[in-house]
Design a protein around this nucleic acid. Sequence first.
DNA 1: CTGTTAGCGCCTTCAC
DNA 2: GTGAAGGCGCTAACAG
Lengths: 334, 334
Amino acid sequence: MNTPSSPKAATLHDVARAAGVSLVTASRALGNPGIVSEKTRARVQQAVEATGYIPNLLAGGLKSKRSRMVAGVVPALAVSQFLPTVQALTAALAEQGYQLLLGQTFYDVRREEEVLNAMISRQPDGIVMMGLVQSARARERLAKSGIPVVETWDFSDRPLDMVIGFSHLKVGSALAGYFLSKGIERVGMATGNDHRARQRREGFLAAWGRDVPTVTVPSPGSLELGRQALGQLLAQQSDLQAVVCSSDMLAHGILVEAQARGLRVPTDLAVSGFGNADFAAHLLPALTTVHVDGAEIGRQAAALILQRCHGQHPEPSAFDIGFELIERASTAPR
Amino acid sequence: MNTPSSPKAATLHDVARAAGVSLVTASRALGNPGIVSEKTRARVQQAVEATGYIPNLLAGGLKSKRSRMVAGVVPALAVSQFLPTVQALTAALAEQGYQLLLGQTFYDVRREEEVLNAMISRQPDGIVMMGLVQSARARERLAKSGIPVVETWDFSDRPLDMVIGFSHLKVGSALAGYFLSKGIERVGMATGNDHRARQRREGFLAAWGRDVPTVTVPSPGSLELGRQALGQLLAQQSDLQAVVCSSDMLAHGILVEAQARGLRVPTDLAVSGFGNADFAAHLLPALTTVHVDGAEIGRQAAALILQRCHGQHPEPSAFDIGFELIERASTAPR
DNA sequence: CTGTTAGCGCCTTCAC
DNA sequence: GTGAAGGCGCTAACAG
């Protein structure tokens, strides 16, 4: 090593001594500069530079009860649907000096509990969940932990605390209404096996009025699974007119497999996705899908948590961010 | 609220009292069960259940100097290349009771410094960077912080501490060699404007022997940018035989745009990507690309950090994880 | 405006 | 095997 690798990291104590002030004054000069004289502040600043001081927020948080960390929990990071939310959340928090603690549940209730326990142990100032908290035990624990919780990407009558999302049932019925209005009669579904995808399927079926051929794939879907799904669907019903997918990646797979089989989209087969991934608008044909403003979910979640940290109690505590069915060439003949 | 929202979260002190033992004994029963009598351990366990105690790791870390957190820093979460690494890293750490603190630099040196400072303030037991640390100041600070650092997805003669990656120069020259061996003479490049993509381009040009038409796009690329890039490249040179892309998404865009223009791939135009995204093998035609085991990078990074936490000093500290050129239909006329 | 006094919740070191 | 001190680095109260 080139530098004398951390003989001892400088503490606020060292800074105070170097600046010739007391510990508290140094603390205030950094954390609450307004109430310290110009001179002192400058000297403390200088001492910080000189000593290379980096504050230990963990220690500070112990006393102040604010860790300046927020937990973010996703099913799995590779679920691309959530990426804009997590990215925006992380960015919005960083801007206010908060950092994100990332956890993954892998769609497993036991891991969800473990992850949430691990998070609570670190005293986050807030928790943002992608999806609703599944585990009853975890819900209870969270409720009495007093930590602000934002559940996202879903909706519930009885949220744990705050919720930002939309009705997946309504998404399903909107899709059903859309295809019905197109005069389409024979549709199949390729759908992930997670809670939200199942909700959308239920909503679809309720509005559609009868059951439809369905292939269920593990969440998160993939292009490959989409390709396979089309094969299986056509095996069940060879004259399908449309396939409704629970993600854009699955829908993309359907498009590719349709092309491989010489089926023209949308003439022979209409295809819809979900999520409005950035590639959806630029495929051939462009993909009809359901848009949800994932980044906005992240920003709002950050805002809600930060409000709570500042002692406010936002009303209402449930935000329907809505969705939008975007019609593109994959379902729009000519 | 349903439950009396945290009158006061139980502390180890409460547990000890409920179990009728001293604070230290309770601490040991949880953290070092081996050295406590069977009976005491059971009683402490019971007290934990009764009080709903969740340990405060922040407080524990203050004394023990181990936060059981590891920082992970990516350019942006949406850069899909890094997702397998971050996902595997997070999972591997969680398995050992460590959590990931996520940070984003947005390819900006100043933000990189800020993020790293924010991380250091939280006393992580290790830092995993996607890419090399760019900022000289940050390098210095990290070096003398004594925190184990793993730089990934790149290679360097003078790593900050540990590095797991591969030579992007070699990737570039491997691609050049491949296209040369195919007898292809007129190639263009669509390349991201990040450090690693530029290195691959340099490596390509060095082996290729002369400059080639190039379109530079903002990182991370997208399907849309790929489509645009093909248009621009063809405007520069209309008889291109191949396009080399710095990511699979860009390459995918080239494929789509080629199809839109009635160019057959690979007959009229060969296309290669980078990253071996999960869709690459299943496109039509399947995409020739460069595979890098991103998940393995994450697992190894976790292992290195954890070894350091356990006081070991792994040798060597530079790991070349290699890469593999995967030939598929997009460059292989049958 | 500045300093003194107490801890935050836990873990380490030392005694017993 | 257990317990009694002391302190990790910092910040909320109070005082001056």
